[in-house]
Amino acid sequence: EWIKFAAACREGEDNSKRNPIAKIRSDCEEKHPITYSISGVGIDRAPYGIFVVNPRTGEINITSIVDREVTPVFVIRCFAKHSVTGIDLEPPLELRVRVLDINDNPPIFAQTVFTGSIEESSMDNTLVMKIIASDADEPNHLNSKIAFKIESQEPSGPPMFIMNKYTGELHLANYLDREQHSSYTLVVKASDRDGAADGISSLCSCNVKVIDVNDNFPTLAQSSFSASISENSLSSDLLRIQALDADEEFTDNWLAEFFFLSGNEDNWFEIVTDRATNQGILRVIKELNYEYLQTHSLIIGVRNVAAFHHSVARDFQMSGTPLTIEVKNVIEPPRFHPSSVVFSVSESTRVNYVVGTYTAIDEDTGAIASNVVYSIGRDPAAWFRINQNTGEITLNKVIDRESIYVINGQYRAEVLAITRGVTRYTATGTIVLSIQDINDNCPTINTELRKVCMHSPSVIITAKDRDGDPYGPPFTFSIHGEPQTTWIIRSINASSAELVSQNIDFYIYRIYISVRDNQGRRSSSTTLSGAAIGLMFLGGLIFVLIPILMSMSDCCGCGPGAAGGVGTGFEPVPECTEGAIHPWGIEGAQPEDRDVSHILAPTTAAGGDFCEPSDIYTNTYGGGGVVASGVEETTGVGYGTGTGYGTAGGISGTGEVKGSIGGTIKEYREGGVNMAFLDNYFSEKAFVYADEDEGRPANDCLLIYDHEGVGTPVGSVGCCSFIGEDTDETYLDTLGPKFKTLAEICLGKEIEPFPDVNLPWPCVNVTFPNPESDLNLPPPGTTIVVNGCAPMPPPVGTTTVVTENTYTSGSTIQPPRPMPDPLLHGNMTVTETYTSGSPSLCVDPLRASNVVVTERVVGPASASDLRGMLDIPDLADGSNVIVTERVIAPNSRLPTSLSIPDLVDGSNVVVTERVFRPASGMPGSLINIP
């Protein structure tokens, strides 16, 4: 139930004269006393008290002026209550009172000033902007209906704009030209009641900016321009050319862009725009030559930076403006032209060679300058001299393309031409000597010795060649000598390779590596590089160390030292085992050092004079001969079992071994080395070491030794590596004395003698040719005494480590020398002996009784070579390689002659002999030599 609008009042007026505006009555008042009441907005809620009711009669009066814009409708809620009980006798009734609108509000603009812009030359009716206004009177009522109108325009004149009366949109009504009026100001009126005369109006301002477009072509201030400049000079502001343009200043529509239509083909000039003045600045950027051209006639044009507006673009016509530059003549000094000249010569060109003639020019005449004196200016290597009158240039020195002053094959120097007379001018020219390279340098190997890890042994080899292409990389690296069975070279890149061992071992390898350049020029073995010096030196050391190492690793374990075959010591050859693979050498487990003097000393032994001190303990290696290798044991079953076997023969044969070891590793391979055995052998070692890695200090000493191949020079360098921490040498303390000595030698340390209360060590010297000047190894037949010191006869009770080696070349193997009677006194250890030449051993025989001799011989199984030295059967296949090893540990009653051992007392001699990879046809009876 509801009540429709029932009453109305007018805003802004005193409506009280119309009271009561309404009256309410209940039919209950006939039976009950009733009190009427009202509530709601305008009564008991703000605005309060506008309406009141008479409680008895129910008449409702309005008491105040109302504002429709504040409260457009009042809702009066009417009640009829029992006057005594106050109970509502009727449901409440709502009486709505509407406030009638009057036009009491003007239009209000959204902005005080409206601004907009439009490009000049725009089309008619283009929308410029929209004016917005509102009216607070009753919506959709005439009192709030606004009409817009342009009241005025500034600048005046024809109306440029038109206003939409109802929407307030301002449109373009005429052609705009910014260059005429860049902006307009309009006064716009908004009136309600649809613009009727009784409406209320408001005014606003509209500013319209006219945007510039490039509709004007630039022009030059003058119809022609001219300037002058001296020849051979430059100018950054020779002339200013004023441009004129009606478009908006400092915009791209206004800024001029100058260009040459003709006359500047050689780019002598350029014009840049001064953006502040719109002037073109003429610059001379290349020296002008009066003798070449006295006047430059240029035609210049101008346009704007911005493109022309489409409305005028088709009207543009390029017009040229003449610009004349006069060149002034000046007196010029001589000059080299061209400023540099290139001469090509071969690197082999000799001194006094006439390179060519380089003369200065008289610029004014264009002829060769006649009044000048030539001289050489900057000439860092002083290669040139010049004829002061003719400018003829001659080589003053032998040129070297590898000189530090030669860059990219070119050497540069300066030639000066100085005028005679009081006022002197100097012209400078550059001569470039382009040197054609020749292959006059061998590649050199730059490989530092590195510690070679047993599990990943490798050495990076790099090479370089002072010659350039095509005489440099790629280099070809080659291994020479025996270790090719163990070592391979893997190419890394054009100038380096990796030397890798697949089965590295505790043995000494001497590896000789050569490198060839791209043109086949090889690093000569007789012209070792600096890098090779170190190798050579270490190679020498290796020769020194081989016997030591071998003695440590191969000694039969029968001796007292055998018990210590763990940890850091050498592991001994298992006593009396036959055919077993000898564990690789671990220092400390071999039989303790024994004096061998008693088996070496007798000077009365057959064979002649052994007492030349210089020959004592000489290990002699023949050229290319395989002396020792990483393989030390044999698979021959039953070898080394016979006590006393070959004792004397082995020793006596020592000297002859050399003669029998002409074979090389190549021959090994060709003879059919049991590679399976080798692989298995070294693999087993590797596995064992792998298991022991954590418990083993990484300070094993590893000497790598290899032998050159056939035809390689004698005494070629070897390689020696030592595994250990670079910064921590304490590991040396964990080594046994022998191995420690090895390590110290490897490290270049001064070797500490074993405890010796009697005598110092024999001097251990290593003598090489001057490594700086010439490290060429001697030709075949030359002997290099690595240890040149004559050994001193050790006194009784001393221990001597013999580290003397002699490299002996020559294809002729010297006949074996009988060994002296080893009945010596004192302790003497001869670790390895190879003899090919002069008497090799001579020690004081009056020494202690213990002798340990370890010997290895590797060589072709030429029975004839061995015959007489070793009492072994003939070998059917002469190409077979035999490795024999003997350990002789006689007691004090060793026979007096090593060459003819007295086996009657064989119980005092332990001889272990092994043959490595015997020929297939080699009888096993080799071990049965009595």
Partner: peptide
């Protein structure tokens, strides 16, 4: 019933009462 009368003015400025009743919508 609960009645309400509203005073209205005609074009001549004469007032007259108009009665409204509750109506069902």
């Amino acid at each position: 019933g609960f009645h309400v009368k509203v005073k209205e003015w005609d074009e001549n400025g004469m007032a007259r009462w108009k009665t409204f009743r509750r109506q069902k919508r």
